[in-house]
Each structure stands twice: as structure tokens, then as C-alpha cells.
Design a binder for these strands. Structure first.
Lengths: 261, 261
DNA sequence: TTTTGTACTCTACCATGGTAGGATGTCAAT
DNA sequence: ATTGACATCCTACCATGGTAGAGTACAAAA
């Protein structure tokens, strides 16, 4: 049974040596200008979520750029599926603000709207501050040790300049707080609005001291939660999340061609 | 050939006027096994959103009860459309937690999960408290007068015991705060999670003094915002939103057959 | 040169048929 | 009487064809 997938691994599934040999060699130009060259889907699993995941990744990593067209037909051809699951994926992406669907005209990668990024930051901060406040002094020892382990791994990631690993651990850190508080739906909301910030974040160059600052803030948040100081936990979380957006302002001029408004 | 409906229905239905009085008495239950009997769609407008809207209303007003089956085929027959837009509507409702889609088994109205209702309340409160804090002292005079007008209309609605009108004005009140703060996406999130609370709220019988309490809280919030007292605005908003959920606990026993966990 | 009408192209959108898999009822075997 | 296998039904899911509408390019008229 290859359909069983454990939850918790942030690594996307790799259909390693898929059952069906793709008739189209990816990257060799099937006739389009700049194909995203995404991996083919696994036909044994529900297709629509796979399409969604691939498109989401392609958009947040700027593999496809804002205002680029996302044709149902073209995508279905490239991915070797019909238009229906592609359409379902596009609808969901449109719900999350990553795609603009213009009826009878086409679907396009949404521009980076600074307004939306700032509001996403507002929503995330509002929720996570409340999560931190609620969590302060109500953690299981088991969870606190997990948190400390995560922080230790963050430290080694910083030491090794492994930015991708750090971002992964960062995500696990914040998700863990929500789940320990029994607020899984809140994390879903955060994740949804965070997509708007991810594109900007992906562009922020690895400034040397930045990760150290973030790690230090993670430690402060953890300490405040552990000691049960609700206000302090909220303050540190607020400062931490403001830090993330700070990099966006630095990019404003540099990315004028990608940003709207 | 159900596609040949081009010239038939030129009658413009009223999509979201909101004031359509539902003839369903909340306490008596729907009683019969009668089908939802929803209005037919307008084929000139995009169909899928119309289906979504009708189903959302039917679920939040308990016209269809939890764990009831929502078959794509059956709904498409009842509404006179194909299964595709029905499916798209169901997917969106599943995203919002009002429908459970079990692959290859069926789609069902989600049970009222008290956990989810409480978390929806948490999310809403976190966001709206932050909105109120941000808004305090930063309102245009024009908006404040609008707010006062809304409060006056609320007062007359309370005087006339018009609960539906009050709920409508209540929604406009909270939405207005978000929009004045330039946080339209936040309102979308609030609206999305509020769906979980709406089913419970729809069941709360009209206790005589309840609307007066809510109105008084609206006034307190407005005053705090007007005077620029951020903390006070947040506190009043928090108390106000906690009040809404309070009725849920009263219903816990009464609705055990509708509520899960 | 500017404006307008028109044919064409491309798109999302919907209808509809086919398919795989879970659920259930029936019947035989123990 | 209980249990197991099997046949049937029903479901979501996907593939695919058709349709109307918005953009666009070009030609004709002012």
C-alpha cells in the first residue's frame, strides 16, 4: 500500500520512480516558452490536491511570476491530466489570493499586492499573539522538551547557514505552538494567509545576522511561555512577526516590477 | 440536454438582498423529509457560486441537518444543473468545515463540533479585538456617523423585536469596523470561521434581554473607539464576542443529538 | 489618421459519460 | 446462528466535448 502517508513530515511527497513512465521529458521544451517543468502527478492518489500543491509551490517560490497566465488547458497538457482537477486547484488558489480568475478571460498569477501582504501579516500576528498568550503556562513538559529540541536544531541550522532547513524548523515551531494549544484550525488560517508573505520572504536575501535574530526571538517566546508570562509571550511574538515583514519594505524598490500598488 | 435553458429564466432573482425572511421556525425542526426545495439558479450568472450560497444558507439555517447526505447527483437534479458546479460548491464548503467529503463514499453536512465552534470563536475574537485596537482613534468622522446611524437602527430593531434585522445590522457593524480599518481580507476570514458559529447562533432562542446586552456592548465598543482608547476598545470587543458564544453552552444538552464531541 | 464594425481566437464554464473503490445485502459454509 | 466471500449498488472522481463571452486584430468608413 503506497497510499499511506504519515503526517508530520514537511517534505513533499516524491513519487520516486513512478509507475507510469512520463511520455514527455521534463525540461526539454514540449513546445511552450517556459514550462514550469513540474513533476508529474501520481495517478493513484487524488489528483486535484497534488495539482494544488505543485501550483502553490511554483507560485510561492516564484517559479511562475506574477501576472503570468495559468491556462487550464495548458496546465492539463503539461501535467498529463484533464482540465477538471486543474480547475479545482485554481479555484482553491484563487480563494487564497494567489491566483486571479477572470471569468471567460483566463487565470493569472496574482501580483504581490503590498496591501495584502501587510494584512496577512496583521492577521497572522493577531492570531499568533493570541496563541502565545493562551499557551503561556499551559504546556506539557513533553511539548516543552520538543520545543527545546527544535530550537537546538535551529541553532545548528543557523551555524551551518542552512536557510531552507531553518525556515522548515521555523514553520514547525509556529505550527507546534498552535497544535499544542489545540488550535489546528487557527494554524490552517495562518498558513493560508502566510502564503501572501511567503513570496516576499522568498525574495529576501539571506542577510547574515537575520537568522540569529529570529532564533533569539524564538528563544524569548519559548522562555516566556515556559515561565507562564502571558503578556511577555505575546509581546515577544508580536515583535518576532513584525521582524519578518520588515524585510518586505527593503524590497519595495527592488521589486517594483513584481509588486502592485 | 439540460443546457437548453437560455431564454427560459429571464427573471432576475434577488441574490443577496439578505432580507428574505426564512419561514422556518427554529424550535420546531424541519420535521418532514422534504427536500431542501431551494430556489432555482439564474443560468445567466455563474452557477457554482449560486449553488454555494444556497447550500451555505441551507446548512447554517439548519434547513439541512448535520450528517445529512449531500449527494452531487441528487442536488444537481433538484437544482436543475449539472454535477460540476455542485461539486465545486461542495469543495468550498468542505474547505470551510461545513461539509465532510468522504472520497468514494459521499458528502455529508458536517456535525456541529463544539471544538470547532470554540476555535472559531477564538479566531474571531483574536482578529476583531486587534481590529478594534487598531481602529481606536483612527476613524473618519464620516464613518463614526455611519456607525451611530447603524446603532440607532439597531435600537429600533430591538424595540420592534426584529431579531433578523438586528442580526443583519450586527453583521454590518462588525464588517464596517474591518473595512474602515482597511482590513477587508480579515473580514473574509472572520466570515469564514463565523459560519461554524452561525449554526449554533441560529439555534439560540430569542432570550428577551439578550439583544439589549449586545446593543449596549456595541455602544461601548463604539465609544471606546471614538475616544481613542485602544485597550478599552479591545476589552469591550472581547467581552462582546464572548457573549455570543455563551449561548452555545446553554444549548449543549438540548442539542446533544446535533452536536459531536 | 482616427474611429468603428466585425470576424476570429482564446478563455472559463458547464454538461455528461466512464471508472475505481467503499458500503451493503445475500447466500453458502461452518 | 455466525461468519466469510461475493455480487451489486452507489459514490466521488476524472476525462472530454460543447457553449457563450471577452479580447484582439484587421478592414472599412469617416
Amino acid at each position: 500500500m503506497e497510499a499511506k502517508r504519515k503526517l508530520g513530515a514537511a517534505i513533499p511527497d516524491v513519487p520516486s520512480s513512478g509507475t507510469s513512465p512520463s511520455p514527455v521529458a521534463p525540461g526539454t521544451g514540449v513546445g511552450s516558452l517556459a514550462p514550469p517543468a513540474m513533476e508529474p502527478v501520481n495517478p493513484r492518489l487524488p489528483i486535484a490536491p497534488q495539482i494544488y500543491e505543485r501550483l502553490r509551490r511554483a507560485i510561492t517560490t516564484l517559479l511562475v511570476l506574477p501576472s503570468e497566465a495559468l491556462s487550464e488547458k495548458e496546465l492539463s497538457l503539461q501535467l498529463g491530466v484533464s482540465r477538471t482537477p486543474v480547475r479545482e486547484a485554481l479555484i482553491r488558489l484563487a480563494d487564497e489570493g494567489l491566483v486571479d480568475i477572470l471569468p471567460q478571460r483566463g487565470s493569472f498569477v496574482a501580483p504581490i499586492r503590498l496591501r495584502d501582504v501587510e494584512e496577512a501579516q496583521f492577521i497572522r500576528e493577531s492570531l499568533e499573539v493570541a496563541v502565545a498568550c493562551r499557551l503561556a503556562g499551559h504546556c506539557s513538559p513533553r511539548f516543552l522538551s520538543e520545543l527545546r529540541l527544535n530550537l537546538a536544531r535551529q541553532e545548528s541550522a543557523v551555524a551551518e547557514r542552512d536557510r531552507d532547513l531553518f525556515l522548515e524548523l521555523d514553520e514547525a515551531f509556529h505550527r507546534g505552538l498552535c497544535e499544542e494549544a489545540g488550535l489546528s484550525k487557527s494554524w490552517r488560517v495562518i498558513q493560508s494567509v502566510k502564503l501572501q508573505m511567503d513570496r516576499v520572504r522568498y525574495l529576501s536575501l539571506p542577510e547574515p545576522g537575520h537568522l540569529d535574530v529570529l532564533l533569539a526571538q524564538h528563544r524569548q517566546i519559548t522562555s516566556a511561555i515556559e515561565s507562564g508570562d502571558s503578556d511577555e509571550a505575546g509581546r515577544h511574538m508580536s515583535a518576532h512577526l513584525k521582524e519578518v515583514l520588515g524585510s518586505a519594505n527593503l524590497l519595495r524598490q527592488k521589486l517594483a516590477h513584481l509588486i502592485e500598488k
